[in-house]
Nucleic acid binder design. Structure first.
Length: 251
DNA sequence: AAAGAGAGCAACCGCTGTAGC
DNA sequence: AGCTACAGCGGTTGCTCTCTT
């Protein structure tokens, strides 16, 4: 099948979003929702492709996004869930209200991978390139007023959306817990990706709306299939009984 | 003070699954 | 049944900031 490139049209803007673009996107979605991402930028008057709009909304502008440092509990949960689910960031994000798959992926790659796998020696230098191009500094998302169509969370405010809050090395790792996690990782059965592809193929049965609406994103969609899939339930039970997932919230 | 390297995050790319026709 | 369009996902890259030399 031949699929047209997302941003094939000339004149479509790329790169960091400006506050004006953010404002337009937020205002449009508040008024009309985002039923059709492809048509959205055109209707909203944005020179962006629908994909870019969707990414910007889901990863940055969505009002229920919790920004700022990950708590110790969140980090532990990510490690546990990663042991269970692998690189299924969207599934992991579904268990962490207010966190996006992209954010979790970044945190994993920059902090938690080392913590979970201290033998990891991957060097980023191999992908290092000269930084010649000048790009607009990424801007913090604008705050969104209460929407008539969505129930925005009460704690959403501009003060909690400064992306700079996320940066910096504020991770105070507990050495004892680190060792504990290392041990538990070794004890886990090694499962290849094909297993999870099969076991989690039911992911697709989760209604899309549950993941894209504010209410749905705050719920835990994983619960919808974990209880309805015997095989998945079996493996979940195995992991639970291994004792490594005790601190997970109930499904 | 300047240059280089590393860290971190936002955004893009390309593939896959699914629904509609 | 096959094709197409679309949304979503995971991997990767580009760029800025901070730290080190």
């Amino acid at each position: 099948m031949v699929r047209a490139p997302c941003c094939e049209k000339m004149g479509l803007k790329r790169g960091p979003w400006t506050p004006e673009e953010d404002e337009i996107l937020v205002a449009y979605i508040q008024s009309y929702g985002h039923g059709n991402w492809r048509a959205l930028p055109k209707q909203a008057g944005l020179l962006r492709c629908g994909k870019s709009c969707r990414l910007r909304w889901t990863n940055y502008l969505r009002p229920d996004i919790k920004r700022g440092n990950f708590t110790r509990e969140e980090e532990d949960m990510i490690i546990n869930l990663h042991e269970m689910l692998g690189n299924r960031w969207s599934a992991i994000a579904a268990r962490l209200p207010g966190r996006t798959d992209n954010e979790i992926k970044n945190v994993w790659n920059t902090h938690l991978k080392k913590r979970a796998d201290p033998n990891h020696t991957e060097s980023k230098s191999k992908r290092r390139t000269k930084c010649k191009k000048k790009a607009t500094k990424s801007v913090a998302p604008i705050s969104a007023p209460a929407s008539p169509t969505h129930s925005f969370s009460d704690d959403f405010s501009s003060s909690a959306t400064d992306s700079s809050v996320v940066t910096g090395d504020n991770y105070n790792y507990n050495a004892a817990l680190k060792e504990e996690k290392m041990e538990s990782v070794e004890e886990l059965p090694q499962l290849d990706d094909s297993f999870w592809s099969e076991a989690l193929s039911i992911d697709n049965s989760v209604p899309t709306n549950d993941l894209t609406t504010f209410e749905g994103s705050l719920a835990a969609p994983i619960s919808a299939y974990s209880a309805s899939n015997d095989e998945m339930g079996y493996w979940l039970r195995i992991f639970m009984e291994s004792g490594d997932l005790q601190d997970l919230p109930p499904l």
